[in-house]
Design a protein around this nucleic acid. Structure first.
Lengths: 331, 331
DNA sequence: GGTGGACGAGAGAGCGCTCTCTCGCCAGAT
DNA sequence: ATCTGGCGAGAGAGCGCTCTCTCGTCCACC
């Protein structure tokens, strides 16, 4: 009662195993009537190729590792980044008949595991989702001679093709919007400085403030809602006269709005707020949040394309996608 | 420059391939000094077993399909259910050295794909996450003679072991809480009736109302925030005198709170609201949401255990986990 | 009519591993 | 000294597939 093999199909169709294989793999050098006979045998037996046997000889596995290297706090949070990326990547890869093997690599132990797994040739390539600068995984995997791409620029300079959005440009657009609407004392709640997104968005903020001759007022959060609320309270303590704040992600911005409300500040009348990410919840805050949208779906699609290109020997040039200011009512 | 094989390891250690294989697989019938020699050869060569070759002969793959069968609207939404389940399942399976192959099965085309893939012996077993009653996948996969478990009770009676939370009991607890706090006209915003969770939670609501001699007032949403807002407006139109509403999930409850605010109703003074799920955002609504907590992480862990038991020939009895009323300020 | 070429189909090797079967060796019993 | 038993290690088959090489056939052209 085991699964039928190619041998069985060939026998039933009265041809050789090689010919049956040709039909299965869609080669054209098979006469139509033979092709039909084989196809019929396949249907009758319910034949499905054994992938292990196939990849043993082809040296391909048709599966791709999607490595999520991030502490649980962030993956578990309300931030839809990871689920969106995972989902989009699956859709894109399934469209080209590749399987997605999901691997989480939060601990040092799991790092070793992932490294061994990828080194072991279980997958044809890997996609890395890691925003942490201290993360040892990107350089480690880059050494493995397996095609790898990264979602987001790796924090340490390492020769991995990547796809990122224009964090600096987006932050600049956000702060410029505040400057142009006449705000004078513009603070920021920055993200973690060991993450590339945190760094770049702070850089964008600083760039514009420098050019417009304003003083920078900085608090640092960790991209969670709660840390945004804490940072906002701290900023209000440091500089009660601030009239605007650029928050490095929307989740922290939601927390900041909460602190502003508790402190009796009106948004945007007293304090203007601009976030970053344009998560779903940004539409539903009170008031709705002005923010920077970056296209997660397109970025993911671009990442998948980049990896597929790499398989074909493509150059693997980094891709930077533009961001967009979405003006709602908070600024 | 290809990867070292077991043959190479054996040659370097001066033993046969069979002996090297014994060492790799941790068999005890190998003399210590030979074991050491082989281990050293493995380390020096950086040998990693070829999984394709191994599973060709063992007929195992050590990977498990995680099939998410749900329309994009829900997976994409803010509902953290899927990302939590996916994450927890990964952690649990990685702990026992199994790989997670993620498959999305939203369209009919992808259904066929998933079915073929699982039938093709690419995985040792499958975990199904599907809340849709109309979903043809569970019965189809159940026929494949591959160990399968389901997250949530399959809507059509089909012989698949499953793990679910006590939706009926949870809904009963929620509505009983409203009854006991003296509410008279208790409405509900039900979930989609083609989903088991939607059905069961409505059943729980009806059970308690029947027993407490109250009239049921029902609107139906689709588990999204927006549909909750719409349903709440509709309920207020149908019965302006309602003084409580049990909402079948928190996301819709958030929408309902919004509609209540717009209609000038105070919560909980005029209308009490109880949700279901206890998502993160439930803590941050205005006022914080009273809701039913069900343990997603434990449910996922139980699902994984159930599948592993199945591999060992376990009985595969369904597991139902209890829920818990979390009283905050909305009711 | 003979030859060359093109093309379709089969034979068979081999991918890297596991596992059964066999064999050799040594210890202990007779 | 011979035999038996047990255990550790090797030989070799075979998992199911792909792919190269070879061969046979048929047609076209000289």
């Amino acid at each position: 009662m085991r699964r039928p093999t190619l041998e069985a199909v060939a026998a039933r169709a009265g041809v050789s195993r090689a010919t049956a294989s040709r039909v299965v793999n869609g080669q054209t050098t098979v006469a139509p009537h033979i092709r039909d006979a084989v196809q019929q045998a396949i249907d009758e037996l319910g034949y499905v190729p054994n992938s292990a046997a196939r990849s043993l000889v082809t040296q391909r596995t048709d599966s791709i590792a999607l490595v999520v290297s991030e502490p649980p706090t962030r993956v578990f949070s309300e931030d839809p980044l990871f689920s969106t990326v995972i989902r989009m990547a699956s859709v894109e890869l399934e469209a080209v008949n590749k399987q997605v093997v999901l691997m989480l690599a939060s601990s040092a132990k799991s790092h070793a595991r992932v490294e061994r797994y990828i080194a072991g040739g279980h997958v044809d390539g890997a996609m890395l989702i890691s925003m942490h600068g201290a993360d040892p995984l990107p350089p480690a995997i880059a050494r493995l001679r397996v095609p790898v791409v990264s979602y987001g620029r790796p924090a340490v300079p390492v020769d991995i093709p990547y796809v990122d959005n224009d964090n600096v440009g987006g932050a600049e657009a956000a702060v410029r919007h505040l400057v142009e609407s006449g705000r004078r004392r513009i603070a920021t709640i920055a993200g973690p400085q060991d993450m590339i997104g945190g760094q770049d968005r702070l850089t964008g903020y600083r760039n514009v403030l420098r050019d417009s001759d304003r003083r920078s007022i900085v608090a640092v959060g960790d991209f969670t809602r709660e840390s945004g609320a804490v940072a906002m309270r701290q900023l209000l303590g440091d500089d009660p006269g601030l009239d605007a704040v650029f928050v490095a992600n929307d989740l922290m911005a939601v927390g900041a709005l909460q602190s502003l409300r508790q402190a009796g500040r009106r948004v945007p009348d007293d304090v203007a707020v601009v976030g970053f990410d344009d998560i779903e919840a940004a539409k539903y805050t009170e008031p709705p949040l002005t923010t920077i949208r970056h296209p997660i779906a397109e970025q993911t699609a671009a990442m998948v394309r980049l990896l597929l290109d790499l398989f074909e020997g493509g150059p693997g040039d980094p891709v930077i996608l533009p961001t967009e200011l979405v003006v709602r009512e908070s600024a």
